[in-house]
Amino acid sequence: MLRTLLLAALAAGLLTVKGATAAESRGPVTNLPLPRFVSMKASEGNVRRGPSLTHRIDWVYVRRDLPLEITAEHGHWRRVRDRDGAGGWVHYSLLSGVRTVLVEEDMLDLHTRPNADMPVTARLALGVIAELGDCEADWCEISAGGYDGWAPKTALWGVDPEELRN
C-alpha cells in the first residue's frame, strides 16, 4: 500500500527522487527536464501550499523576470523555489521560459569575453536580474540595463553549473 502511494505521488510530481535517472527526471505534464529554470512572466504571482486554488497562499512574488527553479509539476501547477530556497506552487500561466539570472555578487564585472583578463564593459549590483544568453563551461553571457558581457557562473543564480547554452 505504501509503495503504491509513493509511486502515485512520484508520478504526479508531488515527490521527487534525488539522483533519479534522466528518464525519471522529466515532468509528468510537460515531459521537460526537472529541475529546470524559468522566470516570472507576471509582475505578481501567488505562491500556494498546494497545486490548486483551494490551497492557502503563503506569499506573493512581486518581481517580474525573477528566476525560479521548477522542481515538480501537477496539472497546470508548477512547484518552484527561489534563490533563498523558499517555494511553493504557482500556476503555469505566471511563468515564462525566458531565462534570467540573479546577480549574487556585488559590483559584478561584466567582461567583453569569457575571461577575467578581458576588459570590463559594466558592473552589476547585487540582486540585479539579467537576461541569460550563451553559457560556456564556467562563464555566461548576460544582459541588464542596456549592458551586456560575460560573467562567471559562480556569481549567478538561475543557471546550472554544468549547463551549456549557445
Score class of each variant (00 low, 15 high):
Y92F: 11
V120D: 00
R64P: 11
S25M: 07
E24P: 07
T21V: 06
L95A: 10
L110G: 01
S96M: 10
A122K: 11
W89R: 09
L95T: 05
A23D: 10
I57H: 10
W139Q: 09
G133K: 08
L34W: 01
V159G: 10
L132Y: 01
L34R: 07
E24Y: 03
I57C: 06
N31I: 00
N115I: 04
L95I: 06
A116L: 13
R79N: 04
D58C: 02
A125L: 09
G75C: 00
R78C: 08
E163M: 12
M40N: 12
P35R: 14
V98E: 14
Y147V: 13
E136M: 00
R49E: 01
K18A: 13
V60E: 08
T71M: 07
D82N: 15
L15T: 11
R81T: 15
P161L: 14
L164F: 01
G158N: 12
T4N: 11
T30N: 09
L164E: 08
W150Y: 15
R3E: 10
L102M: 13
R48C: 02
T121I: 07
E141M: 10
I142Y: 00
M40P: 13
A116Y: 09
R3V: 14
S25I: 03
N31W: 04
A11I: 06
L68E: 02
I142S: 03
L132S: 06
N46M: 11
E44K: 14
G88D: 02
L53M: 05
D84H: 15
A9D: 12
Y61S: 01
F37P: 12
T154D: 08
D160V: 07
R49D: 02
A12S: 14
F37T: 13
Y92P: 03
D109Y: 02
A137G: 03
A130M: 04
K153S: 01
Y61C: 01
H111E: 01
L66T: 00
G87T: 08
E104R: 14
